[in-house]
Each structure stands twice: as structure tokens, then as C-alpha cells.
């Protein structure tokens, strides 16, 4: 991409939260998003954990961007990320053991979350520390909000509770929403809704629109030439 990145704060916020939302638009980080969103608390916990790692790794990678040799940069980023993940793992085990238990395997697996590496490679390695931290905050918040939304929908429809509080009657459960199948389908529907809201239809449709516009342009130009 040759175009110059616009890095003003409002632009970063809009990109991170909506137009370039990591989960709904870029479909990155789908593994934890599907696995940990059985309840709103878990979804929010996972989102905030990922966001905090994203902020710290963006900061450190941005500070080190002039010292890391280009050939081994990916390996260096992974070590930085894994270091922060280990810190988070130990921190959660000590202070929030309940969350650590329910998220389980997916806390250490934040290391291989493509969002963090993608932000490091495409943003933090090219921008100053302040901008990188802001980018981390907004991209992380976008991911956390997406997870919270997905988890809320699944918890409300699946077990009839929200953040542990009963909303529907005592007997209400819809097992499929809590099951893996429900995770995929809910994410699919939310992605569709989100893409529409941000005015970005998936590939084919925009292509069709563009070609139609081009055709119209061609016709107009031809008419202009004839006149």
C-alpha cells in the first residue's frame, strides 16, 4: 500500500473502533473471539487482556523500531509479545484466578493472536511511541468491544443471562448459541451487520458497484466525445 497513512487521533479512533475493526472487518483474532465468548464476562476479560498486551507491545516495538534489524524483525516482535503475555499470565494467576481458569489455554495463546503481530508490523514499526500506544488503545478497544458484543449476544440468547444476571425466565436456555456452532453463526451475522453499518459490503458487491460506475463513466465520456 503506497498511500501515506493518516495518523491523526480521530482517524485512529475511527479506524480502530469501526472502519477497520480487527474482528468484524479484518476478521483477525477469530480463535479467541469464538472460543471465549460464551459469557459476557469472559468475552470482556479476553478483550481487555488482548488490548493490554497490544498497547504494551506496540509501545515497546515502537521504541525499538530503529534497533531491530529488518531481517529478524518478526522473530523479535514475537519474543516481545510472548514476554508481555507471560507477564499477563502470571499476573492473572495471582490476582484474578477465576478469569485465568475460565479463559485457560487462550491466555498464553494471545502470543499467536494475529492482531498483535499485524499492528506491530503495519503500525508500531513505522510510527512513534505515542501514536503507537494510541493505535494499540483504539485497535484493542475495538477488539474488546467486538468480543463483548459477541459474548453478550451469545450469553443473552444462549443462557438467558447478562453478566450473570437472569433476564428471561429461570428455565430459558438455547444450547446451540453457547455451542461452537452458535459461535460461528453469531459471528457471521454480526460481521454482516457491522459491514453494512460501516458502509462496506463484502468484496463482490463493491466490485459490481465499481464496475457499474466505471461503465457509466465510460458511457458518459463517449457521449461527451460525440457531442
Amino acid at each position: 500500500m503506497a498511500k501515506v497513512q493518516d495518523t491523526s487521533i480521530s482517524r485512529l479512533a475511527k479506524d480502530g473502533l469501526f472502519t477497520n475493526n480487527t474482528l468484524f472487518i479484518q476478521v483477525l483474532g477469530a480463535c479467541p473471539a469464538l472460543a471465549t465468548t460464551t459469557s459476557a464476562v469472559n468475552g470482556l476479560g479476553m478483550g481487555l487482556s488482548t488490548a493490554s498486551i497490544l498497547v504494551f507491545s506496540n509501545l515497546l516495538i515502537s521504541l525499538l523500531r530503529n534497533f531491530i534489524p529488518k531481517q529478524i524483525r518478526i522473530a523479535a516482535y514475537i519474543v516481545v509479545i510472548a514476554g508481555f503475555v507471560s507477564i499477563l499470565e502470571i499476573f492473572l494467576k495471582a490476582y484474578i484466578p477465576a478469569l485465568d481458569k475460565s479463559l485457560g489455554l487462550f491466555i498464553p495463546l494471545i502470543t499467536t493472536n494475529c492482531i498483535i503481530l499485524a499492528r506491530a508490523e503495519s503500525f508500531a514499526s513505522k510510527n512513534g511511541p505515542l501514536r503507537s500506544v494510541l493505535d494499540g488503545v483504539f485497535a484493542g478497544a475495538g477488539f474488546a468491544l467486538a468480543l463483548f458484543l459477541l459474548a453478550s449476544v451469545r450469553e443473552i440468547t444462549g443462557s438467558g443471562t447478562f453478566m450473570g444476571l437472569r433476564i428471561f425466565g429461570d428455565e430459558f436456555t438455547l444450547k446451540v448459541m453457547i455451542s461452537p456452532a452458535g459461535a460461528f453463526i453469531t459471528l457471521g451475522i454480526l460481521t454482516a451487520v457491522f459491514k453494512t453499518l460501516t458502509g462496506r459490503f463484502a468484496g463482490k458487491n463493491t466490485e459490481i458497484k465499481e464496475t457499474r460506475q466505471e461503465e457509466k463513466k465510460d458511457i458518459k465520456e463517449k457521449e461527451g466525445a460525440e457531442n
Partner: peptide, 11 residues
């Protein structure tokens, strides 16, 4: 239209 691409793949 809104389901084209990733959404329908996820479903």
C-alpha cells in the same frame, strides 16, 4: 448482499 464474503462463510 450483506452476507456476501466472510459472513456467509462463517455461517
Amino acid at each position: 448482499a450483506i452476507f456476501r464474503g466472510t459472513p456467509i462463510a462463517l455461517v
